[in-house]
Design a protein around this nucleic acid. Structure first.
Lengths: 232, 232
DNA sequence: CGACGATTTGAATAGGATCAATGGGAGTGG
DNA sequence: CCACTCCCATTGATCCTATTCAAATCGTCG
């Protein structure tokens, strides 16, 4: 890694409170690389050799079984992925590929575990991150088990809307096919779900979405902070 | 907690490697209680006051939204629940109730966090447990998104079968309604799924299940270690 | 302009949910 | 011991949701 990148890495929540020498040791072992879009980074089943930290761009976590494939999550800066596999020294449960050109920090698993043992502040940060990931999946799981496809879409739109400043309109942050897979439906069904939401003031034009009847949409969606709120 | 219970608690994986004085402090603050069946222990949305450790019996984690309810997981000895909420000092994402009469250790959240800060071995054990929980939910989520109801049931039967010694028959460990909810389907649909599996040698009599055509069932189920194997 | 991929739409099908009714123990009280 | 009740599980019928397959449309990029 180039010395000029160190300060930026140092300011990441994961590293900011760790001891200086431990940080330096960790970074000496790490690689900061830029990958093009649509590049496969890891494959589920492989041993966890690195912890990944997305510092720029976007990474899709996905999984396959039988002939099927589904998007599990999308990781944006500054997010880690595959943390649990690294800590358990186990195989990856998910595959990962870049969505866009992305800058990613790779830290060898052994070094992560060593730093975890040695540096208490780092251990605490790791645990907070991991606990956050855990709660994120639990919410996704509740979303899928307790809601219909239309409700999932409605709530997702409300989430993007508030994340983007609640201006009455929003931009879909990913391809519709990706959003469909993330929400656990086919692209065709997503299209139909958007049509179902049209009477609730949802107007779609490409990636641009206008919400013309927020109250109506909220009544339909019945958002639940224990599913929809991030970071709680 | 009674002094006579201490050695047993001490031998739990979560506590066995922690420092003696830290362990004693933690246990002085903790409660070991026996609860009857079908008792509500916690409700989602409540602040995380305690970490729960199931030492005997069985606890169901479930969640509600709109009018719907679903089983998220079942915790048997020795398992913890609500660990992430405790570490993040956040509200519970799931409710919990006893399935059977159960003996449960309750440790105040503050003390868990304090011990986590002070005792490195405990912190390591906590992290292993949390990482295991995380991977568990990821597997559940993959199961639900990548498989049909019949496939989920077939794989679940194979799992119980191998957990119970692979003798050719198995006992369903929970009510069928609970298993249905855990697998993300209605009781009616579970019944029909069992019928669908009959041609594959699955004979059901109450909670007793015989698998008369393991190869056939495996061919249908296509088990995947990255979904079905526990503890990896 | 032409090709390709993404999205949308339509039609048919399958998978699962709902509603209603029946069968079958386990437990209760006579 | 038996009748009764209650709850769980099963079955049937129907409805609704979502998937599949096919085709058309749209936009982008070379």
């Amino acid at each position: 890694m180039r010395t000029s990148d160190l300060p930026q890495m140092r300011s990441l929540p994961l590293f900011e409170s760790m001891g200086e020498s431990n940080f330096e040791t960790l970074m000496q072992a790490a690689y900061l690389q830029t990958f093009p879009a649509q590049l496969d980074l890891i494959t589920e089943g492989d041993p966890a050799d690195f912890l990944y930290v997305v510092t720029d761009g976007c990474v899709e976590l996905y999984a396959r079984s039988n002939g099927r494939e589904t998007t599990m999550a999308l990781v944006r800066p500054v997010g880690t992925f595959i943390l649990a596999a690294v800590l358990k020294d186990a195989v990856y449960l998910m595959s990962a590929r870049t969505v866009q050109k992305s800058r990613i920090l790779l830290i060898p698993s052994q070094n992560v575990r060593a730093a975890f043992e040695r540096d208490e502040a780092f251990a605490r940060a790791i645990v907070q991150d991991l606990a956050g990931c855990y709660r994120g999946v639990v919410k996704e799981h509740k979303d899928l088990k307790l809601r219909t496809a239309v409700e999932r879409l409605a709530n997702r739109l409300l989430r993007y809307h508030s994340e983007q400043g609640a201006t009455g309109s929003l931009e879909l942050p990913y391809d519709k096919r990706t959003i469909a897979s993330l929400l656990g439906m086919t692209p065709e069904n997503l299209s139909r779900a958007f049509n179902t939401l049209k009477p609730y003031g949802v107007d779609v034009d490409g990636a641009a979405v206008r919400l013309n009847d927020l109250d109506g949409l909220v009544t339909l969606a019945k958002p639940n902070p224990l599913i929809d709120d991030r970071g709680t």
